[in-house]
Design a protein around this nucleic acid. Structure first.
Length: 430
DNA sequence: TGAAATGTTGGGGCG
DNA sequence: ACGCCCCAACATTTC
């Protein structure tokens, strides 16, 4: 008789502690087999040295090492998730499958297929809220519809948060003996056709939190936390992060609320992935000049702050948030290139790439979004440089030839580009 | 989570 | 002393 087991399926919650679904799984009546699936659907689109795959892999390795202290191990699979579940149900006597909610359109359809398949086999598929404080339907207007403007959403969010006495902790370590005893092989990165990237995820740092509000806009100061990739893949729990933010910095907390705002927008309005939230903005006649796109990607536009940002992105997988706004505005307004092209480039390069935030912020910059900057708000890259990198510390770090004669001439004249953008948007909205 | 254009004010130079 | 002009500094409006 094969031992009956529970499965816990890791997805974007790569941690053993304070993990809601895992906590519930470990309290089930059966030993827990921890599983991660490298999804071909996602992997096939990535370059073989994708830094995020390497990061996930090394994180999983750490988890597996920890599990081995308890004579358990992580089961790693690669392929199509539904097919893998079909195989697993014949290999194991699975009673229940636990995991945490995932709100992206692809994840929803994937989970639906898995749920339906498991249901046929009489296996319960239990999912939990873990990656947010408030999910899809927990912060709604009084009439029951979702918010589409940030400020009232934030107010409601905070109001609801007041009602929670304290963020619950889902500690798990005392239950680690409930993991299924096993010694599954831990495959090398090479086994999936990937190799280690030269780009590395850097450690995060909370010590900046108390001064975040004053320093976050200055890219030369290391005033940001570098938490984003850890939050993205769930190495850090949102409950712990929010608790810390609440104790130290309201502005940082506000950024975390933006994250949930865009997550619920994506859930309720999944069409934003391919369309402007406000459809009339899809009438914009983008210029979509490929040479200019390439110059933007490479950081050779001749606008120092734009170029610095893009080079930081290309070389490190990070870009300071203030600079993200500047380069995004530049692509959409100055070059009149479709925000979807810019978004796709960020998706390729950012270590913290997350669909809902990336899409929401690009639509914000393009002026096409639900709570976007008005289209006539055009960033002046030179003014932004003066305001936020006055002594050129950040800029000359990433664009060392800045002071040389060899540095590129501006790809477009600011005044001309601004007027062209205003005219193009105006025309589209007629 | 702008910037430019336009309007207003007030101090100082000067006849 | 007074009015006029200039213009920087700030405020408001417009894109």
């Amino acid at each position: 008789m094969v031992e009956k087991v529970t499965f816990f399926w890791f997805r974007r919650d790569l941690r053993l502690d304070d993990n809601v679904g895992l906590c519930h799984a470990l309290k089930s009546n059966f030993k827990v087999v921890p599983l991660f699936i490298f999804d071909d659907e996602i992997l096939d689109k990535l370059p073989e040295d994708d830094a995020r795959v390497g990061f996930i892999h090394s994180t999983l390795e750490d988890i597996s090492k920890k599990l081995r202290e308890y004579d358990s191990s992580l089961l790693i699979k690669k392929g199509n998730p539904l097919e893998i579940w079909k195989n697993l149900t014949s290999e194991f006597s699975i009673q229940e499958v636990y995991c945490n909610h995932d709100y992206e359109p692809y994840a929803i359809s994937r989970d639906k297929k898995v749920h339906d398949f498991l249901a046929e086999k009489n296996i319960k598929f239990k999912t939990f809220k873990d990656q947010v404080i408030f999910e899809k339907d927990e912060v709604l207007k009084d009439n029951g519809t979702p918010y589409t403007v940030y400020t009232p959403y934030k107010n409601k969010w905070l109001q609801n948060f007041q009602l929670i006495r304290d963020t619950k902790e889902y500690s798990t370590e005392t239950m680690f003996d409930n993991f299924f005893k096993s010694s599954f092989d831990f495959p090398a990165l090479r086994a999936f056709g990937f190799s280690k990237s030269s780009i590395m995820v850097r450690p995060y740092d909370f010590s900046m939190l108390s001064t975040y509000g004053e320093t976050r806009d200055f890219p030369a100061i290391d005033g940001t936390s570098s938490v984003s990739p850890y939050l993205r893949f769930g190495l850090l729990s949102i409950r712990k992060l929010v608790k810390r933010a609440k104790e130290t910095n309201a502005i940082y907390l506000s950024e975390l609320i933006w994250r949930e705002f865009f997550m619920q927008i994506l859930f309720h309005f999944p069409q934003v992935v391919t369309e402007s939230f406000r459809p009339k903005y899809d009438a914009i006649k983008w210029r979509n000049n490929k040479d200019e796109l390439e110059k933007w990607c490479l950081g050779t536009t001749g606008y120092p702050l734009v170029d610095a940002g893009m080079r930081e992105l290309n070389q490190t997988g990070y870009m300071h948030n203030r600079v993200r706004m500047v380069v995004a505005s530049f692509l959409c307004k100055h070059l009149l290139i479709d925000w979807r092209w810019g978004e796709a480039y960020f998706a390729e390069k950012l270590l913290d790439y997350e669909l809902s935030s990336n899409n929401g912020n690009w639509q914000w910059a393009a002026g096409t979004g639900c709570d976007a900057a008005p289209y006539f708000r055009v960033f002046n890259p030179s003014e932004q440089l003066k305001k936020f990198d006055k002594d050129l510390k950040y800029t000359s770090k990433w664009v060392p030839e800045f002071h040389e004669l060899t540095y590129a001439q501006p790809i477009v004249d600011h005044k001309l580009a601004r007027e062209r953008a205003l005219a193009t948007y105006k025309e589209a909205l007629k």
